[in-house]
């Protein structure tokens, strides 16, 4: 028995050591999650507005063009429950926070990151935001949350090719180029199919998260803007009408019951033209500036 266990340990030792080294090396690579977590703390004293949401917010709102001090805390596929947990994590450290902008897209109330296609992103919230997640190697480590190929590429790009892994600016915004190579119709078909849910089992949980989020913000006297982000007509025509109706019903209900809550529905707003979009449902840099100025105006002019 002793001989067998010794041999087994000896065999596994290099693997465990290599795994530990790789995990350490991966965690040392700068990334958007760690960068944002640090930035919010660094700017804690001055931050007045926080922007939450998924890629629609990440690529759509650039606080650097605003007259107020804001930070974009969105990440791809970030769901409302995580928005709320990030707010809970940082709000006590932000003495001047006055407004919270929560993006509610067509899919926001019907999906969670934890059960979606991009659930591998969840570990980033545990590793870099210190959010408590159910314990599993997939939820707590770089190595196990990503495919081997992804981890190997990350290591190669950073340590060998010296590529910069940070895409966001100092305000948490990531700019998208003018347009994708897909045409808008093709991109709308793909996005609408990805954003349409036949299973509405997440609705209750996400509605509850949003309701608690709004209640928690307004209880501190802070203002909430519930934003339905702009999209192309090709996308709007194809997304689930039932999901949109339900989404509007829920956020209007929240606004009607609380004077500190405003709904900004820009889904089909004609101030946004095709030239403002990167693809069917994401703004490019020009569109992001337009949306950011619009939000700035709303936040600064409305009492």
């Amino acid at each position: 028995m002793k001989n067998f266990l010794t041999k087994l340990m000896l065999f596994l030792l290099p693997i465990v050591l290599a795994g530990g080294l790789a995990e350490g090396a991966l965690r040392s690579i700068p990334n958007d999650y760690a960068t944002k977590a640090k930035a919010v703390i660094d700017k804690a004293e001055s931050l007045e507005v926080l922007f939450f949401g998924s890629s629609h917010t990440l690529y759509g709102i650039d606080p650097s063009v605003m007259s107020i001090e804001g930070y974009n805390l969105a990440h791809p596929s970030q769901s409302i429950d995580l928005d709320y947990r990030l707010y809970q994590r940082f709000a006590p450290q932000l003495p001047n926070l006055s407004t919270v902008v929560i993006t509610v897209s067509s899919f926001s109330l019907f999906s969670t990151l934890a059960t979606g296609l991009e659930q591998w992103r969840l570990a980033n919230y545990a590793m870099y935001y210190d959010l408590k997640l159910p314990w599993s190697l997939e939820n707590q480590t770089e190595l196990f949350s990503n495919a081997f190929k992804t981890s190997a590429l990350k290591l190669w790009r950073y340590y060998v090719s010296n590529q910069n892994p940070i895409w966001i600016n100092d305000f948490g915004f990531q700019a998208k180029p003018a347009s994708t190579t897909l045409d808008f119709t093709e991109s709308a078909i793909l996005a609408a199919s990805r954003h349409t849910y036949s299973d509405w089992s997440a609705l209750e949980q996400q509605t509850q998260a949003l309701t608690e989020f709004v209640a928690s913000v307004t209880a501190k006297g802070q203002r909430v803007i519930l934003l339905i982000p702009p999209a192309t007509a090709a996308y709007v025509e194809r997304i689930s009408a039932a999901q949109m109706t339900k989404t509007r019903e829920i956020i209007q209900g929240l606004a009607e019951s609380n004077a500190l809550v405003t709904v900004l529905d820009l889904l089909s707003d004609d101030r946004f033209e095709l030239g403002d979009f990167y693809d069917a449902d994401h703004l490019n840099q020009q569109g992001a500036h337009k949306l950011s100025e619009l939000l700035d105006s709303l936040i600064t002019t409305t009492p």
Partner: peptide
Amino acid sequence: RWAIYYAVLGLVIAFGVS
């Protein structure tokens, strides 16, 4: 022997779908 085991394990790690 161990080189063979590490090679198989390497394939499991590199190409395994979890």
